[in-house]
Every structure is written in C-alpha cells, then in structure tokens.
Design a protein around this nucleic acid. Structure first.
Lengths: 218, 218
DNA sequence: TGATAATTTGACCGTTTGGTAAACACTACA
DNA sequence: TGTAGTGTTTACCAAACGGTCAAATTATCA
C-alpha cells in the first residue's frame, strides 16, 4: 500500500532516510539562494538528481520541505546562544560566543542564508518561533548580561542591542558573502578572512564593553 | 505611433513621469519583501493600482523595473560612505557615519531590503557594481581609516572589517526588522528602538576603537 | 521463489507566470 | 474641431508552475 509520507507513523526505511536527507540537502541549496517563493520543485528535484514526482513522494508539498528545513536550522541556529553561560567569565563568554557564531557563518553559510531569506521576507513561516522560543531565550540571556553590568564586570549597555550586534556582524560573513568577497578582492577572499574577522570583532566587542578606566581589561 | 518605452529618447511626458514613479514605488514594495524571483508583475501592478499591460507599457520587462530600482538604490546606498571625510575628526566621523546609516535603515527600510535580497541571493544583477565602484570607494575610505590608526587617533584595526561591522549592525535594523521587533516585544518596538540602537552602537564603536590608555577618549 | 509493500516514472491537469496584439480612449495642439 | 500621437484595456499566448495518478519497477522477506 502507498501511504503518504506524513501518515507513516511507524519506522522509516533505510531508503527513506537516505532520500529525505538527499532532498533536504538539495532543498537547502536552492531555498538558501532563491528564497521560498523564488525556488521551484523542479529545481530542487534537479539538484537532488531525482524526478519531481519521486521527490513529492517523500515531501508532499514544497512547504513541507521548507518546514522540515527551517525546523532543523532554527534549532541549531540557537545553540550557540544557549551555551552562553551565566557563571562564566563575561569577557571569555562573549569572546567564545562570537567565535561560535563566526564558525557557523563559515561552516554553514547556506543555513544562515536560508534563515536570512526567511526573516528578510517577513518571517511568514516562523513568526511564532521568533516571538516565542527565540524571544524567551534572548530575554533570559539579556538578564545574564545585565547582571554582569550590575556587577561592574562589563560596561553598562543595552543587552538586546549587544546581542543584535553580535548576530549581525557574524552572520554578515555568511549572508553577504558575495559583497564581502567583492570588497576584499580575490587576494583576501580565502578562508583567512574569518580569522581576520574574528580578530577584529573580538577587539571591537571586548574593548567596546570594557569598563572604562579599568586597567585589568587593557 | 507606439514606441516602446526604452526607445523614447526624447523628453518624457508628465504622465510618464508620474506613472513611472508610481510603478517604481510599487515595485520597491514588492521586490523588497519577496526578492526578484519571488515577485510577480501582477502583484506589482496590483499594488500600483493599474493593469499589467499598462504597467508593461512603461517597463517592458520585470527585469527593467528591477534594474531601474537597483540603480537608484545602489547610488543612495553609497552616499553615507562618500561623505566620510578624511579631514574630519575620526571619532565624530565614525559617529555620524553610524548615525546616517541608522537613519537610512529607519527611513528607507525597503531600499535596504531590496539590496539585501539581491546580495543574499548572490548579487546576480549587481556583481560588477560591487567589484567595481563599491570596492573602489571602500578601498579609498579604508585608506583614510588606516591613516587615522597610523596617526594614533584610533586603535589599530582592520579597516575593511570595521566598515563591514558598521554596515551589518546598522542595516540589521532594516533587514531583520521582524526579528528585532519579535525579540524586543511590542513595548520596545516603537521608533525609540533606533535611538537605543544609536546609543549602543556609538558606545560600542567609539569605545571599541579608542586608543588604549588614552584618557582623552574616556 | 513468490507475494507484498516500497519506490520510481511518464503522462497529465489546472493555475499562474511573463509577456504580446490589437482595439479602444484620451489628450494636446494645429 | 480634427487628428496624430499617448495612454489604457480586453483578450490572449506559450511556458513554467505545484501537484496528481496509474502504471511500472524494485526491494523485502516469509
């Protein structure tokens, strides 16, 4: 019997596992570079190397593919922030948060762009996740940052805008990669640009948040 | 005789002027929220309040509309950087550059998103402009920044990544507006968020670039 | 091996898309 | 007022789109 994919509650075949992975990989490639509405099923099928009906056997709609991808990406996107530790040293916590976000931009640029496309276009599919889980997590970490400023460990600042600044500067290297490469020129477009970015951003954020007149941070 | 719009070399009618403006306004709205491939001519015609063939009388293709928009936006997008003055005081130059970029994010978010969509999707229509005029302008301003660091007026840093950081942090408030609003919550989503952002970013960049141990910058 | 379920395919469908043709309406100006 | 252009609309087209279907093929395992 042919059951639609979504109705199969029991265990998945080896082929199912493999093909779904193959499709999501292709879908990521396509969605990340064209956005949801700009992508076609034929395109995805083509990249995945299978026929369109075959692809639709595993994901019944274009939306289903996108949903599956978004769910997966959103979760891993939040991971670095979750690791943000209240007990740790503020300077090294911020430093390693920047590092992790920059590593994600380097190693998973398509995931970043998928997310960027979605948010840029008004986040029609994930508005609830943004207003719910994301906001709650940020609220929690903002409170951590505030406690650091109260303790005089870092300069007084708006924790939300600090988080926005870290997000934007790091993801810039994935989302606006073409622009970054264009401006840097070919000589500086090697992997080394991530190291340069890391150095600059660490300096910017660490010095920018250092308590004024505190010699220990110099 | 009906001449295609592009062939009309002589002066434009009052109606032409008005309608083309109306169309570009509508096209900006649509392209900015759906990207090029995700937008349809019908959608734009609908927003502009005219029939599709009527719209195509003024712009013969979807591409022509996009081109016209991109050209206009790219130019004004570069303006703030052009104003960056080598003779000025580094701290106030950087401060007012941030202000101007933030004002653009606040007053022209659709223009910013149009550009973001284009770059995010690989800049297929403006790669030459990025590698040419944009790169040249940035190269020039990077040299200005380098001269400031050599003169000991600001901390030593990579001028390119400094410019990237200012671009990304400021444009974030236009391009990722939905996310920013979601995280801040409704109470903080008023226009005041731009003032908060300005305060934070000025602190971050000014203190982050202050020469260490220099009391004049405290 | 055979039966049964899982997978793949080609042919197809209704809709949307970018764009055209030609007729019609309006406007400016001699 | 007439008429030559300018502007607008209705009707249409071929291609691309998301998705379905039944038939054919392949995998699984008793």
């Amino acid at each position: 019997m042919v059951l639609p994919r979504a109705a199969r509650t029991q265990r998945r075949t080896r082929i199912q596992e493999e093909k779904e992975e193959l499709i999501l990989e292709a879908a990521l490639e396509v969605f990340a570079t064209h956005g949801f509405r700009g992508s076609t099923i034929d395109q995805i099928a083509d990249v995945a190397g299978m026929s369109k009906p075959n692809l639709l056997y595993y994901f019944r709609t274009k939306e289903a593919m996108h949903r599956a991808l978004i769910d997966r990406v959103l979760d891993s996107w939040l991971d670095p922030l979750r690791e943000f530790d209240a007990e740790g040293n503020p300077v090294s916590e911020i430093r390693s948060y920047i590092r992790r976000k920059l590593e994600m931009a380097r190693d998973f640029p398509r995931e970043s762009r998928l997310f960027a496309n979605e948010v840029l276009q008004g986040a029609p599919h994930i508005l609830d996740e943004l207003k719910g889980p994301l906001k709650e997590l940020v609220d929690e970490k903002a409170e951590v940052i505030r406690s650091w400023t109260r303790a005089g460990k870092i300069a007084k600042c708006d924790p939300y805008h600090l988080i926005f600044a870290i997000w934007s500067t790091t993801q810039h290297y994935a989302d606006f990669d073409v622009q970054v490469r264009s401006v840097l020129g070919e000589e500086r477009s090697g992997e080394g640009r991530f190291e340069d970015a890391a150095r600059f951003l660490e300096q910017l954020f660490i010095d920018g948040l250092a308590v004024k007149g505190d010699p220990s941070s110099a």
